[in-house]
Design a binder for these strands. Structure first.
Lengths: 132, 132, 132, 132
DNA sequence: TTTT
DNA sequence: TTTT
């Protein structure tokens, strides 16, 4: 997918530690949820906060980073694409799931691990060349 | 919601004409779905296209614009926020729905209506002032 | 401008306190710069960090929020539009300036002011209505 | 750069054909500009359109795609990062340049080339694996 | 220099 | 259910 066609960005906090699995071929998969908070005033002036929980899935290197650095409550910025799946559960009921498949993960708020080993922050990028 | 915390952007095509309703207070609501296409090569070199269908809801003025200008197949760029709702259907089954609540709508590919009355393209914006 | 046509998003830190001015009509204007850091490995394996400084301008309510809450070093997420201006300076030299005109500002990393008075976090939004 | 920290997105039209160069190491570089149009009403009700011209640079494969498919007037969606450079011109005057370095390019409005050879639309992506 |  |  050209990411520009289908892009989600969330800035919020992790609800729990990521759940880590491994595919049969040895690829890591991380799942976690992110809360985004919406604060507004109701018609009668009361302040209301609504929290949305978003399911996020990370594959491969991003799953490994998630496993190493993400903790409950951690503030993150993520971007990815929006995917919808359906499956039939063990009771034969058809289920619909919407997930954000990560392609970027940024830890916010300083400290707490990612700075001890900043390797994952580096892009797969070489030094820019001069034009000929 | 600070839109920067929860933002979805899609560029794709409408599957059908929008469905239009009106709230009890007279506010318009438009619902439609947008297809985003994902083309990649499988492990054995075959070209595969996967289509994702995203449910979109527009309120108020954006619903009116949707009603006037959106047609089946139309290419659009939209941005909005990702919301998750659940409800119990007429058979008592709990249903989960994920929708993109629009806050921006841009028609792509030229012509076909929106240019006949470009009013809706104008921002609620006044002439910039000089600094004192 | 339909924001979807011209959108910049930055996550980084303030270089200095915002500079605040007021227009002749009493509207506040805030200017500040945000550093975004780019870390990569050079061809010979050395880790290199490049910092980009982006000029940001905020008008009206966003300028007031910037004045109240933004401090040197503060981590923020902003979005806005990219504008290019030119002017002739006091020495008669033509100058080109590129700025990000804010339309969203989010303070990251917790604490330090914005939570003491969260009013500015609220959207101009009323309670959602049910569909008729 | 983690793209999530510094991201620009533009939807607009090319002013001219891209200019193509090649680095000493044989890498292609494409430069072009994109117009984004801003329509609003002035204080006295007059409709005003302001055009912003953004300098865009594409490297490597994106430069090759730009060379092959982009034409004057073409409607595109791009995303990239915002960079600021300065250099001294042949008259010894220091110049500042702001550019958008592309990492995504999507041609809008159908037809006109990119469909004759859709290879470039495919992601470097393999078939998703099932979880173990 | 574009486009609607 | 779309589009290329």
């Amino acid at each position: 997918m050209y990411a520009i066609r289908n892009k989600v960005q969330l800035i919020g906090n992790l609800g729990q530690l990521p759940e880590i699995r491994t595919t049969e071929t040895g690829k890591k998969v991380a799942r976690f949820s992110i809360a985004t908070n919406d604060t507004y005033r109701s018609a009668n002036g009361e302040r209301i906060t609504q929290t949305s929980w978003h399911n996020v899935i990370a594959w491969g290197k991003l799953a490994e980073i998630s496993e190493k650095y993400l903790t409950k409550g951690r503030e993150v910025a993520v971007s990815g694409k929006l995917v919808h799946r359906n499956y039939t559960d063990k009771n034969g009921v058809k289920r619909y799931v919407t997930e954000v498949v990560l392609n970027e993960l940024l830890m916010l708020g300083g400290g707490k691990g990612q700075n001890e080993n900043p390797d994952w922050q580096e892009e797969e990028q070489v030094e820019p060349e001069a034009e000929g």
